[in-house]
Nucleic acid binder design. Sequence first.
DNA 1: AACTTTCATGACAACGTTGTCAACAGATGG
DNA 2: CCATCTGTTGACAACGTTGTCATGAAAGTT
Lengths: 380, 380
Amino acid sequence: MPPRKPRNAALAPASDSKQNPRDAHPGERGRGMRNSTIKDVAKRAHVSLKTVSRVVNNEPSVLDRTRAKVLRAVAELNYQPDLSARSLRSAKSYAIGLVYDNPNPYYVISMQTGVLSVCRETHYGLQIHPCNSSSPHLAEELCNLVRHARLAGLVLAPPMSERPELIAHLSANDITFVRIISAAEDPKDGAPCVFVDDRDAAYDITEHLIQLGHARIGFLWGGESHRSSPERFKGYEAALKDYGIAIDKKLIIPGDYSFDDGFRGARRLFSLKDRPTAIFGSNDEIAAGVLAAAKANGIDVPYELSIAGFEDSPFSKQSWPALTTAKQGTEDIARHATLLLLAELEKGDKADAKATVQNKGFSPQLVIRDSTARVRATTS
Amino acid sequence: MPPRKPRNAALAPASDSKQNPRDAHPGERGRGMRNSTIKDVAKRAHVSLKTVSRVVNNEPSVLDRTRAKVLRAVAELNYQPDLSARSLRSAKSYAIGLVYDNPNPYYVISMQTGVLSVCRETHYGLQIHPCNSSSPHLAEELCNLVRHARLAGLVLAPPMSERPELIAHLSANDITFVRIISAAEDPKDGAPCVFVDDRDAAYDITEHLIQLGHARIGFLWGGESHRSSPERFKGYEAALKDYGIAIDKKLIIPGDYSFDDGFRGARRLFSLKDRPTAIFGSNDEIAAGVLAAAKANGIDVPYELSIAGFEDSPFSKQSWPALTTAKQGTEDIARHATLLLLAELEKGDKADAKATVQNKGFSPQLVIRDSTARVRATTS
DNA sequence: AACTTTCATGACAACGTTGTCAACAGATGG
DNA sequence: CCATCTGTTGACAACGTTGTCATGAAAGTT
């Protein structure tokens, strides 16, 4: 075999002449040499391998003086433990997975950002795993993923987090995970989760519309596979009931969390003899579709029609008029879920038991913008 | 230490009574037992460890009969090689990093999707690494990332891919990477890259506007830090020149790749004595800002004002009117970049030399929608 | 003073894999 | 018949780390 050439040869600085993979005393220069190992550190600090290991892992029972000596050597050599060796030996792992199936880039990015912020702090790696929630082999796939990529645990976003068979399968295979689910309260089923009270927020939105004088309020459903859909519907239902407004089934349209379904749903509502004066789309995409349909039909928003969405995605600020919606705080939700997962992992390690991170609920907050207004006149 | 409890205890099936971590003969059931190792496979196939290793890695010099025997055992035990052990021993690695700094979720998600599609096929893991391209420690940060997470290589999205010091630093540290850059042709600097001809596409867009009769065409710049910005500007400039239209500096507004800058830039253009009849926003976000500004000023798009964007993000279809833009094919670009990276990695391994994957150029394609129209009347 | 306990440290094996090298069988050539 | 070659296989060490256990010193207890 010919000697291995440095990659990207053209851009690399003139390389040294000798092939001496092992003799350069580590520590002289930070570049171009093999990574230093725990052995080098031990030699330099005049202690044993194990002592270095202890210091690096913050184990107790090391004299302060020794610790300082080792830390100095670590710094001088720019030593970083090798994760492969570590996870091989300790059967632990330093990466987690984020599993989602969501067509909404804003949501996904917020999720990733939240999870990553914790990963950065804790030096965990993140593997993203978009997937097809309706695949029959998903459970198997996730198990293999965890095994193959040696993931310490998973953060499950909806709708995966809401599929009991999937959850059961993961539990059975001893995989650690956290769920992010739509629910009004902690399910208290023993498994860690973060729950988002979609129902409550949908109630607020509906109430806001009612207080603006609307009585005929259309509702456009989100996807069947997400539990948030029925939750949001329940909120809508409850608000109408509380204000003594009868539910009109003609105003309730099934569909998916998509722009196109918003567009189509709105057209159906427009064709009604007795049109709604307001439409609540189950998320911002749907609401954007409604907005587009309104414009296509020459309906003036918000004066002839109020529109509300759900999610507070960036384009809800940027549409014209800007959308009234509910701010989910996806990033915080993801952050907390990740903290919860890490706590769970620690729990598995030690019998410290006392978990400092708890299941937690989030309530999306109503954000009033320009797409909702007081009812002006009954539509023709 | 008390015996380790299974995690998620409440959901786990009634656990077995004995603590027998090692005695269960692997292969009987697929669940709840330790992962099988190469040793188990060897035992079951009545061959040595090394032979199994050879089969698993598709090395030559194995009798077909032996290979078959081993493969059967592998299948029966659902054996999957342990990546930690593998990368520890072979100093190779099975994950790559995707480095980007881009506020646009659509772009980022497309990028991720493209890279992931290759990763899935090749069983590589993907670590995403959003970062701050203006951080002075970015180069150091990336080196540490690669070392710490044992990444085999990096895919660099703009603008990181366009910073010479960064590239040089990575090369100097012997890190393998591919760049995705904005350029009309292959820079041929020896380092692998995928280049996107923004200039050409911007030319097409400008030409389209000119052919609709527009002569006063505003141009809203994207971010300074992205090379795509001047490239797109060059395309705009070249088209005007080719059609004999003088450049009016008042029509050219600096700014960033953002909605807000689009909004502000458009307002500045509207306040001009001699308004443009068309505006070319350097990306769809900017164009969306222009659209919003037009609506806020009661300007009828496309009849009083044509607007074009760049990127073909989903909302360019969903805005009202839908935006004329250039389709980038980000997903394909990311796919090819990843293939290129993997080819580069293989090249490092063997001296096969003959690279089958080459640097490649992409030309975004003009997509004509409803936000551009034939010039009707001179603006007041 | 002799003992137990506690603490700090180190020697060594082990994690699951692959690289090196040697061994062997059978074929080929003289 | 022996020497050589080729192709297949296996024994063993090594990768860098951490867990286990042993060791010895210092401190506390009788």
